[in-house]
């Protein structure tokens, strides 16, 4: 009497066994009516369910479901209510979102980006009052753009090359460059600050005038002092940047050669 488990019989009915396992089992089934009987529930349930529900797949989908997906507005990745300025930030998020809109983003994406910009700004940039270091991010009209130190690093540093700014009391290193579908160049960066107990990571895109508009700027846990620390950064903030890069990137990130060429031409070749 064979000791074939129910699970193996079921796996056979579901096509989950390897061809060799199938052959072995089929040999046993041929000579074992009890085994065949034990197999029956698995074959039968699969067949009945597949045939009973199969036609459902070809029914028209109710309009209300499509509408529910279309009208949905994914919320900000960072919750406005969790921020120090509470609900007042929502207005700011909207304004920043509106400012980001011309860059070809959907309102929903722009809003989620804006929330992060504001979150990062609230945490890092707006705190920079008094005798604080020069701002990494500054307001330009209705946009947030990279301040001097950040802009210089984004404009001139190859990915992986860190530059230190005494005025900003921070070190900036671009980590990735890519182009979007509409040929805008964007760079992901990391910032290590000298004094604060937090570091930053972000994503900036170069506009036609050569300013680096901040698409995301988030706090990250303090990183190790070694250059490798940049690569090992993790956390929710980094994940949201990864997701954003994923959403915006067109093709592959620039390789070293492409990036070198673009740096040499002041990013002009990107268009």
């Amino acid at each position: 009497m064979s000791r074939v488990s129910d699970e193996v019989l079921m796996a056979y009915a579901d096509g989950e066994l390897t061809p060799e396992e199938c052959q072995t089992l089929e040999r046993m089934l041929r000579h074992d009516p009890v085994l065949r009987q034990r197999m029956e529930p698995f074959i039968r349930t699969r067949a009945e369910l597949a045939s009973a529900f199969g036609p459902t797949l070809h029914e028209p989908v109710p309009e209300r479901l499509i509408a529910a997906i279309r009208r949905a507005r994914p919320p900000a990745r960072a919750s406005a209510s969790g921020l120090p300025f509470g609900g007042r930030l929502v207005d700011l998020v909207r304004r920043v979102a509106a400012a980001l809109m011309p860059d070809g983003m959907t309102p929903a994406l722009a809003a989620s980006v804006a929330a992060l910009v504001v979150a990062g700004a609230a945490a890092g940039w707006m705190a920079g009052r008094g005798d604080q270091p020069a701002s990494l991010i500054v307001a330009s009209g209705s946009h947030l753009v990279a301040g001097e130190a950040l802009a210089e690093a984004l404009e001139t540093n190859p990915s992986g090359t860190e530059s230190r700014s005494d005025r900003a009391r921070a070190s900036v290193v671009p980590v990735l460059s890519f182009r979007t579908a509409d040929n805008t160049v964007c760079r992901e960066y990391r910032v290590r600050t000298a004094e604060a107990d937090r570091d930053f990571a972000g994503l900036a895109c170069r506009d036609a005038a050569g300013a680096w508009r901040i698409a995301q700027h988030v706090e990250t846990p303090k990183q190790a002092a070694s250059p490798e620390g940049y690569q090992t950064a993790t956390g929710a903030g980094i994940a949201s940047i990864d997701a954003m890069v994923e959403a915006m990137i067109s093709g592959e990130a620039f390789g070293t050669d492409d990036e070198t060429r673009l740096l040499a031409t002041g990013w002009q070749g990107a268009r």
Binding site: I66, I69, R70, T106, A247
Partner: peptide, 23 residues
């Protein structure tokens, strides 16, 4: 992009409906 994810969700609707009907 979010738009693209929404489109993919819409494409998934027939299968999700079948799954939900089975439940």
């Amino acid at each position: 992009m979010v738009d693209e994810i929404q489109s993919r969700m819409i494409q998934l609707l027939p299968r999700l409906r079948r799954f939900a009907l089975a439940l």
